[in-house]
Design a protein around this nucleic acid. Structure first.
Lengths: 350, 350
DNA sequence: TTGAAAGCGATACCAG
DNA sequence: CTGGTATCGCTTTCAA
């Protein structure tokens, strides 16, 4: 099936239900025509009143009758009809994350949504499960969003599809800029670099880097590893599943390998590995230095307290305003900016 | 212009002024009419071909020409137009959580989305930030979703608005059933009850219950507290902000109060409080027993290992099938079912 | 096997 | 000030 469809017709046309005394079709949503009929005016007038159109002046009694009719029928405008007519929507589409996301990213998303709502956009998180990259773009484009926060893996072709479908602002959030889209760069190599440099300063030249075995996390893990490597350190990948059993085994391997420093991907993996190392009789940071990332509360509660790399996402308000600017001025040249700030938080584990 | 001779002049539909050689309006999305023109067929034929309509048989050469034209133009169907015509959508609407949600709920949401996608629904998370309850219902209804997972706080009126707008399946996920909707009951009192009973069995009759000071969490915290109280224990609310400073202060208060058991809302607050208590020289579980909830990994990594209440959400697949059933048979009587299973995981902290 | 045309619901132009 | 009416893009019945 070449073109993924949002909804496929499965049921043959329902026949319209019989109209009751008020002329309202029972069992299906009232339309502006129903409101017009009840108020004794034309559909046009209903539209003017309910949208407060300033170009036309409607008498107060008429306004009241229309409002009353709308309320009585429980009238709700039909978004699809409206946007079809208008030729554009106020939908901002963003991907539903398909991996468990940390408080950092989810906090950012919330802020972003809030800010966009205030600017009168309809924020829609779209779960494009199973469809990836440029394939997904077609499904997304069917909704004719005015702005899109493109999911990872969407390429130039996907971006073009979205733009041609009417998206004024297309931005990517990820490690790589994509031609044609505004890029919010989250360069996770920077995280690895900060961790790596710290460990090197502390005299560690051979650094274990935890690589979660869990699916979907290597998007972040790989660049973090590369960041460590870029400091000139010798890097030893340490695959680790998020289970106690695997941690115990990996701890043993770390001990035998003679590694004396580990960058543990993030604070949670750090806690897991640290506990396993301690249970194996390894002293931290004496025998092995451990550093995490994300600066979660739990790192502060560990003993020794966990050194970490703090990440800061851009403010949601700021980004919402950027979106709004782009929507108003779609001609603006796409540009890329780094948005992920990484800074060292040194505690006791390194 | 390869197809110029084949294509018939369209008298009613004039081409837009800035049509290029292919007949495509530049700068705006191609429509099925554009595809038809390029393929030299009618719009109807395009629709038949792209939707694989089985009721009509289209010759293979025609099919090929249509597909090719669609591909060449980068045609993407217009979801709004389609659903307007169809009279219904395949949209399933669910609320974007506005508080940081744990891995439990977010895992459930992902499963649910996945399963719904497989059933060919379009899953849309709708951020109704700032609008609450029945007010939000109107905004939701504008999208004419076929099914809705209603946000907390939506009442009978809101449910009705959604149903009358065409929603075949309306379900609530929360502590209370709402008339007219299928209820997935998540009775968090059960969590408190399990924790409370365990502590009482261990001989604790006066139980501190951590109440997060953070906004939005009392929806869960209050029922959990009531669950503890329902076991007959004397309950002492312990307000606690998720910061080390407050934890230190609260730990001091707990020590002075002579409390010997605390249900800590969840594992994260438990870890925070436990660390503060230990730093204050309190022995766990000797002086104070601590139990959390959610059974996060971190509980297993603490020393002593944290006792906790494990929560199980229903499987996303199961629920997706329920939605599908309801959509197919909207007449079904709304029913309520308990979906949150709470079970004790005893470790060393109690 | 293909085409013409009637709408779905809302809006905006242009007459009255 | 208010009412016809054309239109957005698509599907589907009815005719040819």
């Amino acid at each position: 099936m070449p073109y993924a469809m949002v909804q496929k017709p499965q049921i043959p046309n329902q026949q319209p239900a019989s109209a009751d005394a008020t002329g309202t079709a029972r069992g299906s949503a009232p339309t502006s025509a129903d409101v017009a009929r009840l108020a004794g005016v034309s559909r046009a007038t209903v539209s003017y009143v309910l949208n407060n159109t300033s170009a036309v002046r409607i008498s107060e009694p008429t306004r009241r009758r229309v409002h009353e009719a709308a309320r009585e029928l429980g009238y709700v405008p039909h978004a699809a009809a409206r946007s079809l007519r208008a030729g554009h929507t106020r939908i901002v589409l963003m991907p539903t994350p398909d991996v468990p996301i940390g408080p950092l990213y989810s906090g950012f998303l919330n802020e972003f949504q809030w800010a966009l709502s205030r600017l009168d956009y309809t924020v829609v998180q779209y779960g494009s499960v199973g469809v990836v990259g440029d394939e997904a773009a077609r499904a997304w484009a069917e909704l004719r969003p005015v702005a899109v926060l493109a999911p990872l893996g969407m390429g130039r072709r996907g971006i073009d599809v979205l733009k041609r479908s009417g998206a004024k602002a297309v931005m990517t959030l990820g490690p790589e800029p994509v031609e044609g889209a505004h890029a919010l760069l989250t360069d996770h190599r920077e995280v690895g670099r900060v961790a790596g440099e710290h460990l090197r300063e502390r005299g560690h030249d051979r650094i274990g880097v935890v690589m979660p075995r869990e699916e979907g996390l290597d998007v972040f893990a790989q660049p973090r590893l590369e960041g460590v490597r870029a400091t000139g350190a010798e890097v030893v990948p340490v695959p680790l599943a998020y289970t106690e059993d695997d941690a115990a085994q990996v701890a043993e391997e770390v001990r035998e390998s003679g590694l004396d420093a580990v960058f543990a991907y993030n604070d949670e993996y750090a806690m897991l590995l640290m506990r396993a190392l301690q249970d194996a009789g390894v002293d931290i940071p004496g025998d092995v230095a451990v550093i995490g990332a994300d600066d979660l509360m739990l790192g502060r509660l560990l003993r020794p307290r966990l050194s970490t790399v703090r990440l800061a996402m851009p403010s949601g308000e700021e980004l919402a305003e950027l979106v709004d600017r782009l929507v108003r001025d779609p001609a603006a040249e796409p540009e890329a900016r780094e948005v992920l700030a990484a800074s060292l938080v040194r505690r006791e584990s390194t």
